[in-house]
Computed example of a mutant assay.
Amino acid sequence: MEFPSPLQPATLIKRYKRFLADVRLPSGEITTIHCANTGAMTGCATPGDTVWYSTSPSTTRKYPYSWELSQTTDHHWIGINTLRANQLVEELLTRQGVPSLAQFTHWQREVAFGDEKSRIDFVLSNEKDQKYYLEVKSVTLLANGKGYFPDTVTARGQKHLRELMSIVKQGHRAGLFFAVLHTGIHQVSAAKHLDPVYAQLLREAIAIGVEVIVYRAQISRHQLLLVDPIPFIE
Rank of each mutant, 00 (worst) to 15 (best):
H222Y: 12
P47C: 06
R61G: 04
D121P: 02
D129R: 15
P231D: 00
A85H: 00
Y16V: 09
T32L: 02
G145L: 10
T152M: 09
I33W: 04
G209P: 11
Q170K: 15
V98R: 04
L225V: 10
A190D: 04
Y16E: 10
V51G: 03
I33P: 00
V180W: 05
H172W: 10
N126G: 03
R18N: 08
L7P: 04
S5T: 13
S5C: 11
A45G: 08
H34D: 12
V23P: 02
P99M: 06
A40F: 08
T105N: 15
K169Y: 00
L202Y: 04
S125N: 10
E68R: 06
V210K: 08
A174K: 06
T73P: 00
H182E: 01
A190R: 02
E116C: 08
L124D: 02
E90H: 00
W67V: 05
T11Q: 10
E29P: 06
S70V: 03
A45E: 15
D195Y: 11
G48P: 05
T11C: 06
T55W: 12
R156V: 14
L88Q: 02
A10H: 01
L88H: 03
P231Q: 05
I213S: 04
L225K: 14
E127G: 13
A205H: 07
Q96T: 09
V180F: 07
P99G: 04
R162C: 08
C35R: 01
A143K: 15
Y133R: 05
N144V: 12
T152R: 13
Q87K: 05
S56K: 11
I206D: 07
R18Y: 08
K192A: 15
Q223G: 02
K192S: 15
I80P: 02
L25E: 04
P4M: 08
R156M: 11
Y215R: 08
K137Q: 12
E110P: 05
A205Y: 07
P47E: 06
L181P: 01
R24F: 03
I233Y: 07
R84I: 02
H222S: 11
R162K: 13
H182T: 05
L7R: 05
C44K: 05
K117L: 10
W107Y: 10
F177H: 04
P9S: 00
T183K: 01
V136D: 03
G184R: 00
T73E: 15
L225W: 08
L202Q: 13
Y63S: 10
D74S: 11
G114S: 11
Q108W: 09
T140R: 06
T60G: 01
T59H: 09
P4K: 05
H172S: 09
E211V: 09
T11V: 10
L226I: 05
L20E: 07
F177M: 05
K146Q: 12
Q218P: 03
Q130C: 14
P4V: 07
